[in-house]
Design a protein around this nucleic acid. Sequence first.
DNA 1: TTGTCTGTACCGACTGGACGGTTTATATAC
DNA 2: GTATATAAACCGTCCAGTCGGTACAGACAA
Lengths: 186, 186
Amino acid sequence: MPRASGKKQDSKHEILVAALDLVRKAGPPALTLDAVAEAAGFSKGGLLYNFPSKDALITGMVQFLAGQFEAEIEAAKQNAANSKAPTLSAMIDVTDGWIRQQRDVARAILPATADKPELTAPFMAVKLRLKQAIEAETTNLGAAWSIWTCLEGLHFSEAHSVSVLSDDDRIAVFKDLRNRLNELNN
Amino acid sequence: MPRASGKKQDSKHEILVAALDLVRKAGPPALTLDAVAEAAGFSKGGLLYNFPSKDALITGMVQFLAGQFEAEIEAAKQNAANSKAPTLSAMIDVTDGWIRQQRDVARAILPATADKPELTAPFMAVKLRLKQAIEAETTNLGAAWSIWTCLEGLHFSEAHSVSVLSDDDRIAVFKDLRNRLNELNN
DNA sequence: TTGTCTGTACCGACTGGACGGTTTATATAC
DNA sequence: GTATATAAACCGTCCAGTCGGTACAGACAA
């Protein structure tokens, strides 16, 4: 039978949103099929109809976030249009915002993918595209990858809750990154 | 009764070495109490006698690695004695070596700690000591934390197997880091 | 010097619960 | 009437942790 609530529509999307909301609020271990089904207002069967395995679900979540991330980058590029390295500039801005607002999602998703790197494929695809964009926009790649790697460090140490830097320290790092980005441009 | 093999000795150490060896070779999901016990030549009961819970075992493993890491830093500091920022310099060197030689251990341990940040406490303690050392050796902390964060990025992206950088890219990053370290000194 | 007692180190079968996935039945839409 | 979608009970496995027991090494006394 169809869902009690009657609607059919974009079940996958509903499920993903509910699943992300669930892990954000209840933490990584709460990401069980039963819990996600309940949170999304689906039965387990309905959930598994849409995502045939837990891995598929996680991949879907990663894809969702990766899409969001990429969209934010694109948007931020507009603001950085005058920069000679707009992609990298946008990445700095988006990472900054992410750490402030999406940290809990990153924290929640990371354990689910930690022992299965292949589940991060959608994000990898985005990163590869960004990498190519950066290669096209600067010749000083050593410095560019250095900035890139620093962003990854900020992201992962926050996502892992293992940062020893204070908020002020992190602000200083972002300032340093933007300085170096400007030097890159000149 | 004592172990079948007769020896008693430093059981904890034996277990930790065996456990680290196990995850390195068989991957993170292989880290079950039964598997560790067998790998170490203990029964499950014997294992749990030495480490009363799986969390305790993982903490022990982290502590083991953290101690090794800190010792390597101390050793590398000797080589960097002429630097004005010997600690940061040593961290660059050790991280470089780690990525080349201990990457698989990092990869193996990370999932075990991913959803329980508190298990990384021993490593955090080491990092806090290093942070204090760096604070004492430089005034340009923004740049120092930037380098530090970049090292974390290198470490985590490798540990997570999500790096999109090539070996050459990474070499370029290390070169950039060492350049910036020199600038920091002047 | 033998017998008892006690603490330490270790063994391994077992349990209990969690959880991914299956199955079967069924409703709706085209 | 077939494809799509959903429900809910059920199954099987995996695995952390429990628990009753065993082997040995002193300690201490009679």
